[in-house]
């Protein structure tokens, strides 16, 4: 398989990621009280119901939309010259330096450990109705996969086609696509864990949990 120790060391050597917080839509920007170098936190709580640090608000049609930090980290840059101006959608507002969390490290490692079923085309993907029911009722890990089963609906230009699973039998261990968002060709849709590897994967999870120290 792969060398988890080496992989962990590689990640430890560069444990940062730059996150650009951009305007989700047009509007007039007002920055919150954040400065270069200050610490921010991401959403927290069991269901991520508590919002992260407020970075800015953007006002459009008399509605104010708060923009929160999506991850914890350090503020690298605030594009303060945009204060009070009307910005277009997608304009960068704040850059954050984010230290990878346990879950993220785990996700990176799992992407190497699991069998990945990738998107054949750039399209939007939905679980097929039967699978979707199961996912909603008891989570993706309750779905056991086998070669040839109808797994996805692939939607391009509002035309839909069904997509069958191919790969080893197993359960869905990770889901990588978002509802109603495009996935590029070659990007993973799900990570599948064959039953005989389940214990191995659990070991990997345990190892990351103990070894990775989350920094503030």
């Amino acid at each position: 398989m792969f060398d988890i120790t080496q992989l962990l060391d590689e990640i430890k050597a560069s444990p940062y990621e730059e996150i650009v917080v951009a305007a989700p839509h047009t509007g007039v920007v007002t920055f919150a009280d954040v400065r270069e170098g200050s610490r921010v936190i991401g959403p927290s709580g069991t269901w991520k119901e508590k919002k992260g640090t407020l970075l800015a608000t953007i006002e459009r049609e008399r509605n104010q939309k708060p923009i929160h930090a999506v991850e914890k980290g350090e503020v690298k840059e605030v594009l303060r010259h945009l204060e009070g101006t009307f910005v277009e959608a997608g304009t960068p507002l704040v850059r954050l330096r984010h230290f990878l969390s346990k879950d993220e490290v785990l996700a990176i490692i799992l992407k190497k450990a699991l069998h990945l079923f990738v998107a054949p085309e750039r399209a939007k993907y939905y679980f097929a109705p039967d699978v979707d029911k199961k996912v909603k009722a008891s989570g993706a890990s309750s779905v056991s996969l086998h070669e040839g089963m109808d797994l996805f609906i692939m939607s391009r230009m509002k035309r839909e086609a069904s997509l069958a699973y191919s790969g080893p039998s197993g359960v869905i261990y990770a889901v990588y696509f978002q509802h109603n968002e495009n996935v590029d060709a070659g990007q993973p849709l799900i990570g599948v864990c064959p039953p005989d590897q389940l214990s191995l994967i659990e070991d990997v999870v345990a190892r990351v949990q103990t070894e990775w120290e989350e920094r503030e």
Partner: peptide, 19 residues
């Protein structure tokens, strides 16, 4: 010329029209 988040978002169009 303005970049917007969606052609389907009326708020987006109104905000651009005003600006």
């Amino acid at each position: 010329l303005y970049r917007v988040s969606s052609y389907h978002d009326a708020n987006e169009l109104m905000a651009v029209a005003d600006d």
